[in-house]
Each structure stands twice: as structure tokens, then as C-alpha cells.
């Protein structure tokens, strides 16, 4: 299925958020996820199913002043 991830359209193979984070090669502890403008906390990733056309943002805290 096709989703928009961080502003880009990609083909997503994972069916749940946990899988997507893994698929992107990210350390889960550093990622903040937003699905269709709703923040999804890490404990809900496993139960969050990805649908075609979802807008997903994967963010992380970084250094900043």
C-alpha cells in the first residue's frame, strides 16, 4: 500500500506502526510517531494498523536551542 511518510509517498510493506519503524531502520526509543495528525505513543504502535493513504510522520528529538 502507498502511504505518505515524512512528506514523501512510499510503498509500505509493514501492516503496523511497529513494523514501519523497524522497516525504516530506526531505534524505536528515539522515535515519536504521528499518524494523520494524531500522536501515537509507543505502547500503541503494535495495535496501530496502517491503512492505504495514511499520513505518517516519524520524528525524533534532536539538539536545538
Amino acid at each position: 500500500m502507498k502511504i505518505r511518510l515524512n512528506g514523501r509517498t512510499i510503498e509500505c510493506r509493514s501492516s503496523r506502526l511497529t513494523g514501519l519503524v523497524r522497516e525504516m531502520g530506526l531505534a524505536p526509543s528515539s522515535v515519536v510517531a504521528e499518524v494523520n495528525l494524531e500522536v501515537v505513543t509507543q505502547e500503541k504502535w503494535e495495535s496501530t494498523w496502517i491503512k492505504d493513504g495514511d499520513e505518517i510522520e516519524l520524528l525524533s528529538f534532536v539538539g536545538g536551542g
Binding site: 525504516m24 530506526l26 528529538f61 534532536v62
Partner: peptide, 29 residues
């Protein structure tokens, strides 16, 4: 202060928050 950004895909960086002691108040910008 800390900032929030889109992740670099494939980055294995650890969460910056783990470098900040719990006693310090976070001020996200």
C-alpha cells in the same frame, strides 16, 4: 531546550533525551 525533527531514515542515533538527567526540565522548542 530540545528540538523536534523528522527522523533521518536509517539513523540509529539514540534519543537525545537519554543524555539529559531526569532532574532537568525539558523545554522543547
Amino acid at each position: 531546550t530540545v528540538a523536534l525533527r523528522r527522523v533521518d531514515m536509517g539513523s540509529k542515533d539514540e534519543n537525545i533525551l537519554t543524555f539529559i538527567p531526569d532532574t532537568v526540565t525539558l523545554l522543547p522548542n
